[in-house]
Design a protein around this nucleic acid. Structure first.
Length: 558
RNA sequence: GGGCGGUUAGCUCAGUUGGAUAGAGCGUUGGCCUCCGGAGCCAAAGGCCGUGAGUUCGAAUCUCGCACCGCCCA
């Protein structure tokens, strides 16, 4: 719709110039907007073209607008009238059928309505969660998981080729700490009264794992000492694998399927870290200082250079990250998206520096930061302390409130805004709970369709419906809103902001609830019933498609 | 001390990439079931968009200063 008007306006501009009404100028850089005005008095759509032309034409915006409107040809019969208003806006009033035409189109496209080819040819990697396998996922990870998964779905929807990945930090110190924590607990269980070290993992899950681990051990000296390096390694490997299995299971229950789990250790073993060092050395971006190896990150906008290999020979996490992201590019991805906790934001400049050092544009890596989740119950904070190992796991939350509610609520805010997650609200079956509001609208549609079937009313053939029967303002407005869905999906994908879909769906649901309360769909008049059934079906279709983007179900009945 | 994010209705938050009279939910007040699911709807009240300047036809939106809040780094 907007595109049609845009083309019509550009033709009018050319025609005005050809007729000498407006001066010639280079309008290759011309940018103007066609938008929906806030107030209905200002028409269905409005263009600011004349305002933009004021400078190059050196004429008053209103005069230009008048000339443009005079040269405006009929744009395919959709235009009822065009007016000039305010400082020089051109307001377009469209024939209602222009909006209603969206309805048969939506039903024709079905599940594909809203898809686009914007991202065709782009290979995108979305990396998310990537929690260390030292404990179960907590609520904060859940938010990252919901976001990353929705982003992947969105990007695929708009034509990108998308892969998802979970990076496992299994090569560093935390794994050794995990191994020692496990062995300490194992020794306690075997009767030792040695104090548990303060900086180790204290969670109850470690104790449970230790119990299980003891059963796997055979031999006279079990359980081994936390001072035994080989034993620590073995314990860490065992516990890490166990915990990772648990994480995968948590994600599966949450409805998140990740294409690939990528091990940091495998990266090291394969020599990828060394290869990335060689690459950077060849570019003259590495140097030795005080026994350590440094990457010259400050040359690419980071505030200082960074150590990649310590004087004791250990490579840093950053070194692994450089190698990992380098590999992502080598595997053919040209757009990398990382979902991180906001507490890591200080890390962004150095990784972007690394990307550039490897010869990529800084924009080839986009980092989406996710703010904290505060868990509440009935308005009261739920105590959580990662340090003491006491936190509410994602699994517990999903078990209590359900997958749909958890996912939807995680996506009701922009990701860089902190989120209050109230367990009681998430369980409520009312308007307080946004997911029910949207799902309930879908259920109502389904209920109407069931009712129609019971009454022996056949669903209409979308192409045969007389759209002019939908004469109410609210019907046109609803159809119009539905027609905006592809634009909403594309905008959300481009901005990497799935919460826009949440808001959009809320608006559609609200418009439908309102309509439903005021008008009857099923009635005596067969033509009117058919038209309203089509409208209802289209609402259902759009709600299904949109909820699908969020990974939330669209139930037939609740 | 440097950096990042934030500041919009009593509360929680949107604001379509700079458009015309700033929106939604909760809460408050008052209405709506003979009716396709009331898990819903309608209406009212509620605002110096933190603050001071700048950019321009036009700023909640972009730039700079300042004030608070949160986080990261030293």
């Amino acid at each position: 719709m907007k595109e049609q008007l845009r083309r019509a306006l550009l033709r009018a501009l050319q025609s005005a110039q050809a007729a000498g009404d407006l001066p010639q100028f280079d309008h290759s850089a011309l940018e103007f907007a066609i938008e929906t005005p806030r107030s209905a008095e200002h028409g269905d759509l409005a263009a600011n073209l004349a305002l933009q032309l004021a400078r190059p034409c050196r004429r008053k915006p209103r005069d230009i607008a008048e000339i443009l409107v005079r040269h405006l040809a009929e744009a395919g019969g959709i235009l009822a009238k065009a007016e000039i208003a305010g400082p020089g806006f051109i307001n377009f009033f469209l024939n209602p059928t222009a909006w209603l035409a969206a309805l048969p189109h939506i039903m024709g496209e079905g599940p594909n309505f809203g898809r686009s080819a914007w991202g065709a040819g782009r290979r995108v990697m979305v990396e998310f969660v990537s929690a260390n396998p030292t404990g179960p996922l907590h609520v904060g990870h859940g938010r990252g998981a919901a976001l990353g998964d929705a982003l992947a779905r969105l990007l695929e929807y708009v034509g990108c080729s998308v892969a998802t990945e979970y990076y496992i930090n299994d090569a560093g110190n935390q794994m050794a700490t995990l191994g020692r924590s496990l062995l300490h607990r194992a020794q306690e269980l075997a009767g030792s009264d040695q104090a548990f070290p303060d900086n180790h993992y204290k969670g109850e899950y470690i104790r449970e794992l230790a119990e299980e681990y003891l059963k796997t051990l055979t031999g006279p000296a079990a359980p081994p000492s936390p001072g035994d390096q080989a034993a620590v390694k073995a314990a860490a490997d065992w516990a890490g694998a166990k915990i990772l299995d648990g994480i995968k299971d948590d994600l599966r229950v949450f409805g998140v399927e990740i294409d690939n789990y990528y091990s940091e250790q495998s990266l090291v073993d394969r020599g990828a870290v060394r290869a990335s060092f060689d690459d950077l050395k060849a570019r003259g971006l590495m140097y030795d200082n005080e026994g350590a190896l440094w990457f010259a990150a400050s040359r690419y906008g980071d505030e200082k250079d960074r150590v990649v290999k310590r004087s004791n020979g250990e490579t840093t996490y950053f070194a692994s990250d450089i190698a990992y992201h380098r590999e992502k590019f080598e595997r053919g991805f040209d757009q990398l998206i990382d979902v991180w906790g906001a507490d890591h934001h200080g890390y962004v400049p150095r990784l972007k520096a690394a990307i550039q050092a490897l010869g990529r544009e800084p924009e080839a890596l986009q980092v989406v930061l996710v703010q904290m989740v505060s868990l509440l119950r009935g308005g009261e904070p739920v105590a959580m302390s990662t340090r003491a190992g006491e936190f509410v796991t994602l699994r517990e939350v999903v078990d209590e409130v359900g997958r749909d509610a958890a996912r939807f609520i995680f996506l009701t805010r922009r990701s860089d805004s902190p989120l209050d997650f109230d367990l009681e609200v998430a369980k409520q079956k009312s308007l307080d709970n946004p997911v029910y509001y949207v799902q309930y609208a879908h259920t109502r549609v389904m209920s109407i369709l069931r009712k129609a079937a019971e009454a022996g009313v056949n669903l209409p053939d979308p192409g045969q419906v007389d759209l002019s029967r939908l004469g109410l303002d609210e019907e046109v407005a609803l159809a119009r809103r539905l027609g905006e869905y592809p634009e909403a999906a594309l905008g959300a994908a481009q901005a990497l902001e799935p919460h826009r879909i949440t808001y959009y769906l809320n608006e559609v649901a609200g418009a439908f609830h309102s309509y439903y309360n005021a008008q009857r769909v099923l009635g005596e008049d067969a033509g009117l019933t058919a038209a309203r059934l089509l409208l209802s079906q289209a609402v259902g279709q759009v709600l299904r498609n949109g909820l699908g983007l969020l990974g939330v179900s669209a139930p037939e009945a609740m």
